[in-house]
Simulated scan of single mutants.
Amino acid sequence: MHYFILALLGMLLPLFAGLVQANVEKTIFLAPPAATIPSEEPDFDDLGLERLSPQSSVVRTQLNASFPTAEAPEGTDSWFFLENLTPGQRYEVRVCWLATQPTAFTLTTHPLAATIEDSTFLSSLSVYATARLAALDARLQANSIPRRASGRSSKDGIDPAPTTDSILFLRVRAAADYFSTDEALMRDVPPVTVDLILDPFLWNLFPRSLVPTAGWIVAVAVVAAVVARWVVGEFGRVIEDARQERDVQGDKKER
């Protein structure tokens, strides 16, 4: 029995391993209807934003963070581009980062038209894109290969930009969430290494990436139910044996 308990704990512990390795923040949204990108709009590929799509759903990158201020109460802005979404489908975007880098993240999604029409969003996006393009290294940023003309094929090494697509901008704000006696850390917040994950929901109810975890839970629940039934049966057998032995001892005394 002791060996079985140890084995059961061995199956359960991997389910909680992620809780001690990293923190997670997320936002859940419905993909908007497909929209046609007008030709007179600025070329969004030239912004150099990293892209997330169902075909390329994970990006590992570093995000700048800062301590909250009156002008930026939720820290430093970073922007990403969500594309090739299925209209009406539920998605979530998660940001995962090491617990050794205490940071408070805020994730929001914004439609194309709302981003262009809102001067605050557009200004933040422009500032981020300008800084990113200035520091962009194509060898390290393969996910942000610019797509120029929809008429080009993938043979040119350039992903053709769709003229009609379900797209969103993702805004990630990162605020440092620590206090240190190290003056350098308090003065200059180091970049935070993160994984950004785009996860579609199955039937708009359940994140697809959690299917293996759900399978583990179901398997453990089935095993636990079988073991519990066996334990109850064994207890019942022991109690019945003890009762019969007591009755036998009682009969012997009466004789």
Rank of each mutant, 00 (worst) to 15 (best):
M1K: 05
H2P: 09
L6T: 09
P14T: 07
F16E: 05
A17P: 00
G18P: 04
L19A: 11
V20R: 06
A22D: 07
N23A: 14
T27G: 05
T27N: 08
A31V: 05
P32D: 04
P33E: 07
A34K: 13
A35S: 08
P38N: 03
E41W: 12
P42K: 04
P42M: 05
D43L: 07
F44W: 09
D46G: 06
L49S: 00
S56I: 09
F67P: 00
F67R: 00
A70H: 09
P73G: 06
T76C: 06
E83P: 04
N84P: 02
Q89D: 06
Q89N: 09
Y91N: 00
V93L: 05
V95E: 00
T103V: 12
F105C: 01
P111M: 01
A113N: 07
I116E: 04
T120S: 14
L125F: 07
V127G: 07
V127S: 13
L133F: 12
A135I: 07
L136C: 11
L140M: 08
Q141C: 13
P146C: 05
R148N: 13
A149G: 06
G151P: 00
R152C: 06
D159I: 10
P160M: 05
I167D: 02
L168Q: 01
V172R: 02
D177E: 06
T181M: 08
D182M: 02
L185P: 00
P190V: 05
V192R: 00
T193D: 12
D195G: 08
L196Y: 09
I197Q: 04
L198A: 05
P200L: 04
F201E: 01
F201Q: 01
W203A: 09
S209A: 13
P212N: 01
T213I: 11
A214S: 09
W216H: 11
I217M: 13
V220D: 03
W230N: 13
G236Y: 08
R237Y: 10
D241C: 08
R246K: 14
V248D: 13
K253H: 15
R255N: 14
R255T: 14
